[in-house]
């Protein structure tokens, strides 16, 4: 089966034409990508799509009320909404360094969420 994707690996946004197995839906091949990142994106996007999660959590004792956070690695796409929801109940105390772990194993993905800045 043929399907169209847009690569999100860089701002260029290549249009990818992806061939997948009619029966299993598993990735077979891709064209339209300008670089290798495009082909690995296409394979991941078809087999187990994933996205980075970025959000904010409450912070106390800093000059802002919100601390930006980011997942250390991309999360399975289906877990994203749950992961962002989990950020609502987190409050941290300043000071925080960029890279500090804010939440471990978010939404059962085994992936940590870290502070995106020092505050």
């Amino acid at each position: 089966m043929e399907s169209k994707l847009i690569c999100i690996s860089c701002p260029r946004g290549c249009e990818l034409l992806v061939q997948t197995d009619e029966r299993t839906g598993v990735f077979i091949s891709v064209e339209g990508n300008a670089c290798m990142r495009g082909s690995s994106f296409a394979e991941t996007e078809v087999n187990h799509p994933e996205r980075m999660m970025t959000s904010v959590v409450s912070i106390r004792g800093a000059k802002h009320c919100m601390l930006p956070v980011i997942s250390r690695r991309p999360l399975p796409k289906g877990k994203l909404v749950e992961a962002v929801r989990a950020m609502r109940s987190i409050t941290v105390e300043a000071p925080v360094k960029e890279g500090d772990v804010i939440a471990e194993d978010i939404a059962g993905t085994g992936i940590d969420v870290i502070a995106a800045r020092s505050l």
Binding site: S58, I59, R60, G61, K63, H64, C65
Partner: peptide
């Protein structure tokens, strides 16, 4: 609000 906001007197920018 989308999150709890701190309200200590010495906390946020404008309160400072």
């Amino acid at each position: 609000t989308i999150r709890d906001r701190c309200d200590e007197a010495d906390c946020c920018e404008t309160r400072a």
